[in-house]
């Protein structure tokens, strides 16, 4: 990597902040997906279905 000059801390911090925010976003989406799948699975196990029938 090329030298980042006298303000390296700020450049690294900026990239770090972007990484942290994006990682939080991805983690939220993945965890949310798991939670919804789990809730859906539990409901189906209990025999609750939609009126429009089972998914194809």
């Amino acid at each position: 990597m090329a030298s980042l000059g006298p303000h390296a801390t700020f450049i690294v911090a900026a990239y770090g902040a972007a990484v942290v925010i994006l990682a939080a976003l991805i983690a939220w989406i993945v965890l949310d997906h798991r939670a919804q799948q789990r809730a859906l699975g539990e409901l189906e196990k209990r025999g609750v279905t939609r009126r429009s029938g089972r998914p194809a």
């Binding site: 949310d32 919804q36 409901l43 279905t49 009126r51």
Partner: peptide, 14 residues
């Protein structure tokens, strides 16, 4: 996720 969430909501209401 949002579609699944709404599905869960409908099923819970049923």
């Amino acid at each position: 996720n949002e579609i699944l969430r709404r599905r869960v909501r409908t099923l819970m209401m049923i």
